[in-house]
Computed example of a mutant assay.
Amino acid sequence: MKTISIAKSHGGFQGVYSHASDTCKCEMTFAVFVPPQAKEGPCPVLWYLSGLTCTHANVMEKGEYRRLAAELGLIVICPDTSPRGADIPDEKDNWQFGSGAGFYLDATQEPYSANYRMYSYVTEELPALVADEFPADMEKQAIFGHSMGGHGALTIALKHPDRFRSCSAFAPIVQPMTADWSKGAFEKYLGPDQDAWRAYDACALVEDGHRFSEFLIDQGTADGFLDNGLRPWLFEEACGKAGIPLTLNMREGYDHSYFFISSFMEDHLRWHADRLTA
């Protein structure tokens, strides 16, 4: 692991790191905030998964999480959203696919299957690295994310209910199998058989019997992607039928940007901290 940068913030440290990933077969970059409480011992871990076109840097620079994470004693980990590099297959004119758009799945179709394995990267390789390199209490983990990253957080929590104590999302893509900006990517990554897509669709996972303790979702009513891409009411309906507690906050006038995310970041951090320290 290489240290790209490190800076003191609110008594803790915000670092950016890279490593050679066996899973994605390229150099991967990620950010980690370590709170001051880590001087005394391992701290709970909160994973943040970013959305389309983003890197680790978007939430690190605009998410406004460090002050409260330092107060609450949370390690916040921000992975990248896809493999990157000159040798990685890409569609440079398509922001909904390829670089910056890994969708937190393991691709099965060539030429993408060799590198686009973000599900395994986020659930296996990166946690193992974090456990080795940082003062992380891996018995206390939570996960959240935005948009494509909200999709990733929901699906990963549903498939790993014993690993994560809590899961929340900002404006998640809850049914990517049918959403305008994800179904094309799913076909390229996973092939035409939509049964294979269900493993990476939050609504489908709930319909197929996967369960989680509870969810928190915040969604802006002025989000331009709300009706065709996000549609949180579909997940609300699925959770209702399955008996999974879901708090869905429709935030009047907020859009899809980090102005929205940063406005409710503290709510999510406190919600996760309550469950991580219970």
Rank of each mutant, 00 (worst) to 15 (best):
M1W: 12
T3N: 06
T3C: 09
I4Y: 02
I4F: 03
G11M: 09
F13C: 14
Q14A: 14
V16N: 00
V16Q: 00
H19A: 12
A20T: 15
D22Y: 03
D22H: 06
C24S: 02
C24Y: 00
C24L: 04
M28A: 02
F33W: 06
F33R: 01
P35S: 04
Q37A: 13
A38C: 08
A38P: 02
Y48G: 00
L52C: 09
L74I: 07
I75P: 05
V76K: 01
C78L: 15
S82D: 02
G85A: 11
D93I: 09
W95T: 06
F97V: 07
G98E: 02
G98K: 02
S99Q: 10
Y104R: 03
D106M: 02
T108G: 08
Y116C: 07
M118R: 02
M118Y: 01
V122Y: 00
T123D: 07
E124C: 10
E125M: 09
E125H: 09
E125K: 08
P127M: 05
V130R: 02
A131E: 15
A131Q: 15
M138N: 08
M138H: 09
K140F: 05
K140M: 05
I143D: 03
G152H: 03
A153Y: 04
T155Q: 12
I156C: 09
I156H: 06
A157T: 11
K159S: 11
H160V: 06
P161R: 09
A171V: 04
I173W: 03
V174M: 03
Q175W: 09
P176H: 03
K188G: 06
Y189C: 07
R198S: 10
R198I: 05
A199P: 08
A204M: 09
E207G: 11
E207T: 14
D208C: 11
G209K: 10
F212M: 11
S213R: 10
F215D: 07
F215W: 10
D218A: 06
T221S: 15
A222R: 07
D223C: 04
D223M: 04
D223G: 04
G224M: 12
F225M: 13
G229P: 04
R231W: 09
P232N: 14
K241A: 15
G243E: 05
L248I: 12
Y254H: 13
S263N: 14
E266I: 12
H268A: 13
L269R: 08
A278W: 12
A278H: 13
